[in-house]
Simulated assay, not measured.
Amino acid sequence: MISLHRTRALAAGLAAATLFLATSCAGDDLGNDGDKSDSSTDRGAVSISGQDFPEAALVAAMYDQLLTDAGYDTDVKLVSARDGYMPTFPKTIDIVPEYVGGIVNFLNSRENGDSAKPFEAGDGEQLAEDGADLLDGAGITLLDVSPATDTNAFFVTKQYSEDNGVTTLSDLEGKSVTLAAAEDCEGRLDCEGGLSDQYGIDITEVLPLGYASDATYDAVIKGEAELGETSTTDGTLESRDLVVLDDDQQIQPAQNLVPAVSSDFLDEHPDVADVLNPLMAALTTDKLTELNARVAVGREKVEDVAADFLSSEGLTD
């Protein structure tokens, strides 16, 4: 365990119904005590938050089921962006499914300003070590870093790529484009900020339509935006005649999955590490992609996919 007192190929390509499903599962099903298994041990309450895009909702469902099985009374509330929960984490939130680069650079920007040099390590363990002081100052501990990783990616239509000779983000240098992306994309070093400053792309407008949402896909397909935000594990783009542009200047830091826990809560409940760390070890990028595909393409319920994976890996009975 790394104790430090950190805006994804089928995973993130989603139809509107899928996003609604994941949000519904996060807001309702995950917090529905009637769906939880009984436990002979009452370990008290635990609050879980995080983002509500399907992959994060899937991992939150796994946390929920594992902690419930361990005897905790869970309360899960997911929101649309990291900005929605970080103001109260870890004060009123105990655990968040996170990405190493995402939380470390969020804390870096909050502490040192939006112009602060980002943490860029491509290795999740190293990035967590680099952000140790920030995490400690925030009262957040990262548990084991998973080998499963997922980073932001940006796409255009195949027609736009062919007509403009664009295959990398550097090919957009000096071009004026509208970007459809997550609600908190503007100014972020791994989103609009990096595209503007590092790549020299003229982002004329950011449409806050959601991360890998149906609205974001539609905006690019219909020509309302030239560029859209998704993830490196999005395998639904080809069927939509969309292509990811290569991040040839590598502005995306390591985004390994990791449980972020209130340090105070962990001091009182050290067994939480024993509950969640085996899940981190079991998850790989390929497995996560397959699980996300079951939600995005197979239209399975988030909680059902989570339960099946936990059982198949021997993490629950």
Rank of each mutant, 00 (worst) to 15 (best):
residue 1 M to G: 05
residue 2 I to L: 11
residue 3 S to M: 12
residue 3 S to N: 11
residue 3 S to E: 11
residue 4 L to C: 10
residue 8 R to S: 14
residue 11 A to E: 15
residue 11 A to F: 14
residue 16 A to D: 15
residue 19 L to F: 08
residue 20 F to H: 15
residue 20 F to T: 13
residue 22 A to I: 01
residue 26 A to V: 10
residue 29 D to G: 12
residue 30 L to E: 10
residue 31 G to F: 07
residue 32 N to K: 12
residue 32 N to E: 13
residue 32 N to Q: 11
residue 33 D to W: 15
residue 39 S to L: 08
residue 41 T to K: 10
residue 41 T to G: 02
residue 47 S to V: 07
residue 48 I to W: 06
residue 50 G to W: 04
residue 53 F to L: 04
residue 53 F to S: 01
residue 54 P to K: 09
residue 57 A to D: 03
residue 60 A to E: 06
residue 61 A to T: 02
residue 66 L to E: 07
residue 70 A to I: 12
residue 74 T to K: 09
residue 75 D to M: 03
residue 75 D to K: 08
residue 80 S to Y: 08
residue 82 R to Q: 08
residue 83 D to Y: 12
residue 85 Y to R: 02
residue 89 F to L: 07
residue 92 T to W: 14
residue 94 D to C: 05
residue 97 P to V: 00
residue 98 E to F: 00
residue 99 Y to Q: 09
residue 99 Y to L: 12
residue 103 I to K: 10
residue 112 N to F: 13
residue 114 D to P: 03
residue 116 A to D: 02
residue 116 A to M: 00
residue 118 P to G: 01
residue 121 A to E: 10
residue 121 A to H: 09
residue 122 G to M: 02
residue 122 G to E: 05
residue 123 D to A: 03
residue 124 G to S: 05
residue 126 Q to E: 09
residue 126 Q to P: 00
residue 128 A to F: 03
residue 128 A to N: 03
residue 129 E to W: 02
residue 132 A to P: 05
residue 134 L to R: 09
residue 136 D to F: 05
residue 137 G to S: 04
residue 138 A to R: 09
residue 145 V to H: 02
residue 148 A to E: 03
residue 153 A to F: 12
residue 157 T to Y: 04
residue 159 Q to V: 10
residue 163 D to F: 05
residue 165 G to W: 13
residue 167 T to L: 00
residue 176 S to L: 01
residue 179 L to C: 04
residue 180 A to H: 04
residue 180 A to P: 12
residue 180 A to Q: 08
residue 186 E to A: 15
residue 190 D to T: 14
residue 190 D to K: 07
residue 190 D to Q: 13
residue 191 C to K: 08
residue 192 E to K: 09
residue 195 L to T: 11
residue 207 L to Y: 08
residue 208 P to L: 12
residue 208 P to N: 09
residue 210 G to F: 11
residue 230 T to Y: 04
residue 232 T to I: 11
residue 239 S to Y: 07
residue 240 R to P: 04
residue 242 L to C: 03
residue 250 Q to A: 10
residue 251 I to G: 06
residue 252 Q to D: 02
residue 256 N to G: 07
residue 258 V to S: 00
residue 259 P to S: 06
residue 259 P to V: 00
residue 259 P to K: 00
residue 267 D to T: 14
residue 267 D to F: 06
residue 269 H to R: 00
residue 271 D to W: 03
residue 271 D to T: 07
residue 271 D to F: 03
residue 272 V to H: 01
residue 273 A to Y: 08
residue 277 N to T: 01
residue 278 P to N: 02
residue 279 L to M: 10
residue 279 L to F: 07
residue 281 A to K: 11
residue 284 T to H: 00
residue 284 T to G: 01
residue 285 T to C: 05
residue 287 K to Y: 04
residue 287 K to G: 06
residue 290 E to S: 10
residue 291 L to V: 11
residue 292 N to S: 13
residue 293 A to G: 15
residue 294 R to Q: 15
residue 295 V to T: 14
residue 297 V to C: 02
residue 299 R to Q: 13
residue 300 E to F: 02
residue 301 K to R: 14
residue 301 K to N: 12
residue 301 K to T: 06
residue 303 E to F: 15
residue 304 D to S: 15
residue 304 D to G: 05
residue 308 D to Q: 12
residue 312 S to I: 06
residue 313 E to W: 02
residue 314 G to C: 07
residue 314 G to H: 08
residue 317 D to K: 11
residue 317 D to C: 03
